[in-house]
Design a protein around this nucleic acid. Sequence first.
DNA 1: CATGAATGAGATTTCATTCAT
DNA 2: GATGAATGAAATCTCATTCAT
Lengths: 206, 206, 206, 206
Amino acid sequence: METREEAVEPGTWRQYGPSTLPKPLEAALEAFAERGYDGTSIREVAARAGLSVPGLYHHYPSKQALLVSLTTLVMRDLLDRSRQALEEAGPTPSERFDAVVESLLRYHMFRRNQAFVASTEMRSMEPDNRKAYIALRDEQQRMLDEIVRDGVASGEFGTEFPEDASRAVTTMCVAVASWYRPDGPLSPDEVVRRYLAIARCAVGAR
Amino acid sequence: METREEAVEPGTWRQYGPSTLPKPLEAALEAFAERGYDGTSIREVAARAGLSVPGLYHHYPSKQALLVSLTTLVMRDLLDRSRQALEEAGPTPSERFDAVVESLLRYHMFRRNQAFVASTEMRSMEPDNRKAYIALRDEQQRMLDEIVRDGVASGEFGTEFPEDASRAVTTMCVAVASWYRPDGPLSPDEVVRRYLAIARCAVGAR
Amino acid sequence: METREEAVEPGTWRQYGPSTLPKPLEAALEAFAERGYDGTSIREVAARAGLSVPGLYHHYPSKQALLVSLTTLVMRDLLDRSRQALEEAGPTPSERFDAVVESLLRYHMFRRNQAFVASTEMRSMEPDNRKAYIALRDEQQRMLDEIVRDGVASGEFGTEFPEDASRAVTTMCVAVASWYRPDGPLSPDEVVRRYLAIARCAVGAR
Amino acid sequence: METREEAVEPGTWRQYGPSTLPKPLEAALEAFAERGYDGTSIREVAARAGLSVPGLYHHYPSKQALLVSLTTLVMRDLLDRSRQALEEAGPTPSERFDAVVESLLRYHMFRRNQAFVASTEMRSMEPDNRKAYIALRDEQQRMLDEIVRDGVASGEFGTEFPEDASRAVTTMCVAVASWYRPDGPLSPDEVVRRYLAIARCAVGAR
DNA sequence: CATGAATGAGATTTCATTCAT
DNA sequence: GATGAATGAAATCTCATTCAT
């Protein structure tokens, strides 16, 4: 009876296998994460990708194109996962809030570098590319804003400043990418549990 | 009865005049904030400082030295202000928490660029310089960690995860530097009021 | 009674249909005319020819080969036309002079790009290829030189400096390629009329 | 009683010492003349100028700048000489015609490479630079055009097509740069004598 | 400190050409 | 012949830094 175009297994948004980026993007990602866009030479990316420099140019016509392809894929992946989390969530703002926050948190742990580079290297994008990236990022932010507003309207959330709280929550989640380490003391599930508690509190849940 | 080395007017930590950085550092700051360390040429810094290139080298022996001087001054300023806020605060963990958080928030609003560059360009520091910078930053973080722990011990804060909450709070405050604009809709006092509410809640105050 | 190998319609040397160059050479011609040999990439030629790059290499083994094939065809065409013009001309040096000059003028108007590229890109030819090209060009020049000498000998031309006059005439005709435009104010016939007058005068005709 | 700003020795326009171009331009000139603009690498120019590559960039900010500086100096020099020749010439169109043609001829013999590169590499100039160059070149052409028109008006020149004749004469003179060799069989004075004869005839002098 | 000249190293990008399919 | 991938060599240009004056 399922009539959706793409029927996806439930919970897929929680599953993170090894990243499926094409090799040159994987190489660019690592390099950008370590040294930044401007601090990374195309030679370095090519070497990491196991290509000659012109070989790299055969696939991506410029350094900027690497950044754009990378960040676009990243934001699409994040958005897809958040949307899927929402679809599977219960109907109440609280449930929806938890779902989006959890998807944000997991993404920033399991796709740490991707998330970090995307948010950090916005300034290295050429104007048009930046505009396109910001549009995607804003879409993600608005998703949470709306839920928080709904929660305040329904009385589930008590915050006086829904916008600020929403941004503060996003901010916290994004920052996870800069300290979380897979081999650190906290498991992803534990991070989710703890940050979810803080996030709920930030919006005055209950 | 005052026996401190430097007796400072009370509330100085809340006062932010125009920055007192030496001109070359001011120039470097603006450039680094706009284009990043690697994206900034020494010629650009010299031009912004109204100096010739060799003139700039007369004051700072390398590009790296500009970054180090800059970030060291920044962290010292922030630490000084936080310490002063603490000295003037009441004795309870709640009062002390509020003081440190407010000092963090104000710093990240009034010294937006400084805070942003310092936190962003850590990766551009040579190993020893990075180590020294991290030491200062950790000192700042430990200041808050300790207060949160004290608050939990005293029963004023109810969080289960003092360390996480403390880091999340710092994180939120640091991120203020990347969205706050002096000509935006929120006054610094209002930002302080709102974020303080969120921060208190994150540590389970009350 | 006709015994020539190839009997050609009279006046053919005056007829210029659309150029019959193979497509890759046509493409190379246009590109070389616009941007010069060194300023043209093989990819550009391939694209203009509607071929893939390896497809182009299938027909011509190198960029240099394109230039050589092109200029050889061009010079042969020009020489053929001049020879044919001579064959159809009357026996006097004046008549023969007019015929060759007219053929030169028409070629440089109707095969403007070909003539321009051939004369311009001599310096881009590898030594042996250049030598071969120069041989053809000299043959053309000698054709005119000889007629002028005959005309002086017969008293029809009065110039003191037959060689100089002959070269100056060639020069003028070649230069027509760099200013003549099919949509300009002068018809080819009119250009022929005017330049022929100047050319005759340069050799002291009458 | 001389009140001119710059009193110049008469006949200066006929004097050609060794060229006074700055060394990098001299180097660029030779290279461009031999291999063309696109065929010349900046390394080659630097090497010929006895500079490192960045050393060359210290003086000229781009390859294009070399071309522009060079061709501007060239056209100014030529124009100055032609104007001076005119000032010293007698009042009749014939005398003025001879003066300008002689100045053109001498320039294209003594500054052969300069003249050749300037006329050849127009297509390598960026649009604005080309426009500026063409303006200078047209000024030179109009100088001759005007004289020829005057000569026709006064009855000294009999040509039916003053514009064509004028361009043909210029063309001949310019082309001298591509065959004249200082060690060839004709002295500059002799070339002047012979070409002047042809040029006069082209405009129907007498 | 400013000016001006200089440079080794290295940046991004392009080119002609080749080969496997 | 087209497609796609690949590459050594070389192109233009920039950078941090230095030195003489």
